[in-house]
Design a protein around this nucleic acid. Structure first.
Lengths: 206, 206
DNA sequence: CACTAAAACGGAGGCGCCTCCGTTTATTAC
DNA sequence: GTAATAAACGGAGGCGCCTCCGTTTTAGTG
């Protein structure tokens, strides 16, 4: 019922300082996170920690040394996924015209949320218990979106009278829609709709 | 991640209909709730269900038949406690002048919340997952308070220019105060303060 | 009473959680 | 290289969760 070193601890580990972990430790830790990603994806956030340890080829004790609680592990996995989502923004921006990059990224965002929907209850607990985590990811995601929007506005592929927070607001609406079976498809359509609106009256009309 | 028969089921069981349970079943069920109250009180909301079964002198299977999940049991215990709190209002009203009854009941309310504070996180999960439970208890508590306040206003032991919702509002403030070690004592003082205010300028001044 | 069907009991067993501590391994100093 | 030691490993063991099903009890019925 106490202790929240998580956010800070992870921050440090991801970065450069603290104690630079012994080679085998680093290896096992990475392995565990890797495996955890897939086990959580397959079985949900309640997937067995022993299975994760088993698949990673380490003892359960090793898992617990690295991640004292399930939440610690969940948090690291979650951060990594958000990281990947945001990194995708940069890549898309290089490979595509900026309006297309924006659209594809938003679609990817929808897919990402879709995988999390089922876990909502359990994940929400982690997110509300650890408010740093929430604001961190919100910040990162917003920033990724902002870059894409600003680039598209700058080169005239979307209209100039909107800004990132407008788009964020629209995405927020998608996110908070009720969790029906059609959620994903409907959200994809909504993103398209949104994009049509954004392209309408752009300087560089097609 | 679904199924919420709880509230309704319990309502029925508490009342008269459905299936009138076999004698032994009724006995064991009551026993279990009784024991659960003390185990939860001693060990917190995560107390062992097997211990509850053991102390109640029944097999673990019996416990699970009556309460398919921990939440079901928690809910029943919680409702029973709220019930007791509200019932106390009536008793106090008979034994004391109505302003004193009001004061004592509010103190008892503080005590009740105090025991729940530690469990806040886990309990909040149950309460937010099951919104019926929340609104039910809120309604009951408000009603108990309303009766006390109205009686005291009516016989002039507290001032006439306030109503139950004012007092409820004040109690709400107490409830949402941060959970420090002094919470309980401070809240008790606040109730006294509130009472002084309520008595000031009452028709029947002392 | 005796009988029977339905209801309820209870605990063994399988699994996951988590801790603890004896064993192994990487690193550092020589 | 070797020795020393701090760091990391890993799994046995104890406990709790929950299900499943053979056994027991109750409540009717004649």
């Amino acid at each position: 019922m106490a202790s929240e070193p998580s956010a800070i601890a992870e921050q440090k580990a991801e970065a450069v300082d603290a104690k630079p972990l012994r080679a085998d430790a680093r290896r096992n830790r990475d392995r565990l996170v890797e495996v955890a990603v897939s086990v959580f994806a397959e079985r949900g956030i309640d997937g067995s920690l022993e299975e994760i340890a088993r698949r990673a080829g380490v003892g359960i004790g090793t898992l617990y040394r690295h991640f004292p609680t399930r939440e610690h592990l969940v948090e690291v996995v979650y951060r990594r996924e958000v990281e990947a989502l945001c990194a995708a923004a940069g890549e898309l921006a290089q490979k595509h015209p900026s309006d297309v990059a924006l659209e594809q990224w938003m679609q990817r965002f929808v897919d990402y949320i879709a995988t999390k929907r089922g876990l909502a209850t359990s994940l929400r607990i982690v997110l509300t218990t650890n408010s740093t985590l929430f604001s961190d990811t919100f910040g990162r995601v917003s920033q990724a979106l902002r870059r894409l929007v600003e680039a598209a506005v700058a080169d005239g592929t979307i209209r100039g009278d909107v800004d990132a927070s407008d788009v964020l607001h629209a995405l927020g609406g998608i996110y908070s829609a009720p969790d029906t079976p059609e959620w994903r498809d409907r959200s994809r359509r909504l993103v398209k709709l949104l994009m049509d609106g954004l392209r309408f009256g752009a300087a560089k009309a097609q």
